[in-house]
Structures are given as structure tokens and as C-alpha cells.
């Protein structure tokens, strides 16, 4: 956590966002700003809607049949659900890292190059340069530089997750969404991911869903607490953890439920 001299602008913002799976309301009238070049942590008990909220930011919920929403999500003041917005384009601007590392059964190089190739990049030198840059950015380069052509499935769990982060960064998105990126990793691998998140925020706007309160406190600048599909409270991380306005937030962050 660092002191912010002035409040940066909102890179993404939801306004009165309500999302339903069929008739079940997953998130209810959530208005939340994701500030530029800050790490926003989304916390809350299982099923509180934090992951659903995250997935709606790059429209991954579109893939689940029967979802519908009301309200707006803005990226740089443009509604991402607007007819004129190409969802492929949106996902290149708003990248995502998943809970379970999911490298393709391809080589390490091809995994990182994937987003570039589908984006139309063909030049070999350019691809190689971007792959190296992304792997360095993902703090994985030194570990894999001699085996770029080996299968990504041969990497350890922590390495695979850093590969997925590097893969997401290769496309150079503006926003990076992370859905419990370290929940399946051991403490050492987790520490590396957290360190990485710290470094990434200079370039990216990050939203991270986490179950781990300490992690939220360690990595984020701002924290949003979700409960039963509603946004209970959002503020500077320090304030949420030391001086929450809401009783429910206090109960959750102090471990009374969750």
C-alpha cells in the first residue's frame, strides 16, 4: 500500500449492475469504480458474486447461457455491452487470469504467443521479442528461457500460473482481471505472484478476486467487500481492514464469518 497523492480516474466502472443466471440474482445493483493503475481487491464469502462481477468486466459471462443483466459497465467511459463494442476487442483490452492455471497443451513459447497470433501478428522476430518481454514481465523468463519449445504442461503449478499471467500480458491489455490467481498455489509460489502483481500495477489496472484476506491486504490499494450479491463497502484497503464503515465488513475481515 502506498499513499496516493490524488485520486486517479476510474478505468472501469459499473453502474447499478444487476446480473441474473436465469431467475437467480447473482449480483444486485453494484456500482463500483476500478481505478487506473491501482490494484482493486474483491473480497467476500463464497457465492457473494465477486467472481461473477469480475467475469462481467470482460464479458466472460456471455459464455454462460441464460445470463442477463441490467445497468452499465464502462471502460474509459464506453459501455462495454454496447452494440458497437466488439467483444473480441474488449477481451484484448481487458485480459483475464483464472483461478486454475490453464496453459494450452502447447509449448511455452506458443502459449505466450497465442494471443498475439490470433491477433494477427506473424513476424517471427516481433513474436519472439514480445514473448520474451512478457515472460520477463511474468517473472518466468530466467526459469524457462532454455526450454521455450518444451510443453507448458511440464512446468510446476506456480510456473504455469505465471505463464498464464505472461500470456495475458503479451496481448498488452489495459486492465488485468485475476480470479483467485494464487488459491491453488503453495506459499512460495503465492509470494511470487503477489510480488508480480505489485510490479504490474505501474503499467496495468488490476482487479483481483481473492478469498485470502491477508493477500487482499498485502497486494491491493483498494478493497471492495461483496456480500450476497451486493457491494457492501468499497474503500482504501487500509480503511476497510482497520476502520470499516459497515458492521458486516468488520465481521468478515476479522473472521467472524466467511
Amino acid at each position: 500500500m502506498s499513499l496516493q497523492p490524488h485520486t486517479p480516474r476510474a478505468k472501469m466502472e459499473s453502474r447499478e449492475l444487476t446480473l441474473r443466471y436465469g431467475t437467480k440474482t447473482a449480483i444486485n445493483k453494484v456500482s463500483l469504480a476500478i481505478l487506473e493503475h491501482r490494484v482493486t481487491a474483491l473480497i467476500g464469502p463464497s457465492g457473494c458474486g465477486k467472481s461473477t462481477f469480475l467475469r462481467s468486466l470482460n464479458r466472460m459471462n456471455d459464455l454462460i447461457p441464460g445470463t442477463n443483466h441490467t445497468g452499465h459497465i464502462l471502460l474509459d467511459d464506453t459501455d462495454i455491452n454496447d452494440r458497437s463494442v466488439d467483444v473480441v476487442d474488449l477481451r484484448r483490452r481487458v485480459g483475464m487470469v483464472f483461478q486454475k492455471s490453464n496453459p494450452f497443451p502447447k509449448s511455452i513459447f506458443e502459449n505466450v504467443a497465442y494471443g498475439l497470433r490470433v491477433g494477427g501478428m506473424k513476424d517471427k522476430a516481433e513474436l519472439a521479442a514480445r514473448v520474451e518481454k512478457s515472460l520477463r514481465g511474468g517473472a518466468l523468463w530466467d526459469e524457462v528461457k532454455d526450454r521455450l519449445n518444451e510443453s507448458a504442461l511440464g512446468l510446476s503449478g506456480g510456473q504455469q500460473q505465471r505463464l498464464c499471467i505472461a500470456r495475458a500480458m503479451a496481448v498488452e491489455p489495459e486492465v488485468l482481471l485475476m480470479d483467485e490467481p494464487a488459491s491453488a498455489l503453495d506459499p512460495i509460489a503465492t509470494a511470487k505472484i503477489e510480488e508480480l502483481i505489485h510490479e504490474l500495477k505501474a503499467q496495468y489496472t488490476i482487479a483481483i478476486v481473492t478469498h485470502n484476506m491477508q493477500q487482499a491486504a498485502r497486494v491491493s490499494d483498494r478493497t471492495a467487500f461483496f456480500y450476497m450479491g451486493e457491494l457492501v463497502e468499497c474503500g482504501a484497503t487500509e480503511q476497510i481492514f482497520t476502520n470499516p464503515r459497515e458492521k458486516r465488513t468488520e465481521d468478515y475481515v476479522t473472521g467472524k464469518f466467511g
Partner: peptide
């Protein structure tokens, strides 16, 4: 084919 691979691909901006 794992759903994970499809979502990963789509999340990277593939059609």
C-alpha cells in the same frame, strides 16, 4: 477438450 482451454483462448481475444 477442457472448458478451461476454450475460456483461456476466448479471454485472450480469440474469436
Amino acid at each position: 477438450v477442457p472448458l478451461d482451454h476454450r475460456t483461456a483462448s476466448l479471454a485472450l481475444g480469440a474469436t
